[in-house]
Structures are given as structure tokens and as C-alpha cells.
Amino acid sequence: MVGIVGYGAQIPRHRIKVEEIAKVWGADAPSYKKGLMLSEKSVPTPDVDTITLSVAAARNALKRALINPKDIGAVYVGSESHPYAVKPSGTTVAEAIGCVPDCHCADFEFACKAGSEAMFVGLGLVKSGFCKYVLAIGGDTSQGAPGDALEYSAAAGAAAFIMGKKDVIAECTHTYSFMTDTPDFWRREHEFYPQHAGRFTGEPAYFRTVKGAAAGILKKAGMTPKDFDYVIFHQPNGKFPQRVGKMLGFTKKQIEPGWLAPRLGNTYSGASPIGLTSTLDISKPGDKILMISYGSGAGSDAFVWKVTDRIKEARDLAVRTSTLLDKNITYVDYGTYAKYRHKILKNK
């Protein structure tokens, strides 16, 4: 049996409301909130980046996995906001959790799909016997250009999964990936903010890819939407996952536990992975969970997870994702947000 032996999330405590951003750009907040189905997003402080979020999430995963970090054979961090342009995030995470030097590290990048990519590769290495355990992380402190629609959603958060064969919390029974060259969102070298292709990011990109991945994995697994207790989609906003879920025949009830974007925003590489953590938090042994990520450029990784008895002992060994999402939060104004996100021009 190959699957998740430990999982954990991290979300910064600071939030900014859609109204606060809309006020600055003279935008109509109610229409943004309705259009995006999103009311606020998480904001990282300047001392938080993809690496710190990854370490915190990884430590939560280790608490649930109850394994010796030295047994982790690979650390993969997927993100579009790695703190360095050149120098891995993974080595810092590996050093912090204490699994160096006997491990493999790599950073993944594939817009919002980099986290599920790390999970996919991790499962493969464990299944092949190359590694006893693999730590796979998806996390971002993503930036939307000031005033752009993305600024309302680009958020921060991370989720970490330790893949292994023993004492599995959720078995991975099937995977399927769907990839095409669809340039809906990109950032060239030396540019600070990414660009996107407006409405082209919807139908021919997100919806076509997610639906393609769903069709592929359902066929491969011989399952229908009704066979699942829960489903998690990539959530660039609150609306897309609801819409694609409806198109595919999933109910709101199946989507709800992993649908975090309305209050969290889009955590990019962390989005569907964090959704999986919050779903595992409330799942029962035997539950079947479908997870489909999406990364612009474009592709989706799909996974079928089957929850085991171990969820009962494991889920409260670390902080639940709903606690991180709902408790201890504090709101910042746009000025503070702009300062935190280095949007204020200063002399060097």
C-alpha cells in the first residue's frame, strides 16, 4: 500500500479583505466578491516565504507521521514563489527538519500544479522502492500585480505530505495526469508579476484540463462521481472549483471540506494540497477522496485517495487546517499589505 503517512498545513494569520483592495483601485467590491466567490485572502508577513511555510507544514506532517526524519529519502518543494531564482528551497527544508545529507532534493515549478507534481513524484519513488519516505510540499506566497484581478486572490499557504508504505493514512489507489501546452498564465525571467490571458484562462485552460483529468482518472479507476465522499479541485478563486464540480456531477457536500478559496484565496501550489489536508481532517476510515490540481501552462494531476483507520489516531497529532484558517486571524489594511509584500518603492 502506497500513500500518505503524514500530512500538515501552514497558513499565515494575516488576511486582507476584497473590499480593502477594491477601495484602493476604485473597483466594485461586491461584483468582485460575487464574481470570484471570494471575500478575503491570506497575507504573508515579510518573514514568511515559501521555505518557512514549507518547514511549518512539514513539521506538522512529521507530527502525524511519527517517523524518524532521517528515513525521508527525498524532499520536493513545489512552488512558483521559491525565494531564490537560483538555489533550492528543498535543501533548507531538508536541513530544518533534519533529513540531510542522506536524501534527494528538488524544487518543482509548474504554476499552481507544482505541489501535486511533488506528490506524484514522491508516490512513484516510494512505490518503486527508491525511497522509504518522500516529503512532498506545495506552497506559495504568490503575488498578483497591483490592481490586477489576481491581486484579490493571490495568497499564501503550504501543505506537506509524507509518502510511504507503512502506516498509511490515505492510500493512493490511482493517479492520472493531463497535460497540454496551453499558455494561459506565465511570468518571464526578470519580471516581478505574472501575466495572464484573461478569459482564456477559463474554458480552454482550467476547465478543459480539469475535466480532462477527471475523465481520465474516473475511467482508469472505473469510478463515477457518486463513488467519492469528497473531491478537491484547484481553486484559483471560489467560483471555478464549484463550477467544474457541478459540470462533472459532484455535489456541494463533496466539495465543501476542501473548498477553502473563499476565505483563504488562491495559495497556488498549496491550493488543492491544503484542500486535501482539510478534507483528511474530517474524513472517516474508508472514505474515498478525489483530488485534481491545475497548473497553468497547462496540466492537472489527479489522485484517488482511500482513507484508512490510521486517520483516527493521526488527525489530531498536529493542528487542523480549519484551526489555521479560522482562528487567531488578523486583518491588515492595504498599506500594511503593500509594505509586507514589498510593493512600496524605496531607495536601495
Binding site: 515579510p46 518573514d47 514568511v48 516565504d49 521555505i51 518557512t52 518547514v55 511549518a56 513539521r59 530544518a96 536601495k348
Partner: peptide, 10 residues
Amino acid sequence: EFRRVQTHDT
């Protein structure tokens, strides 16, 4: 908690 310290330069 693990955080960045001394974030001033780029």
C-alpha cells in the same frame, strides 16, 4: 516557528 530573519536586502 521557523522564519526569515534579516529580510532587508534583495
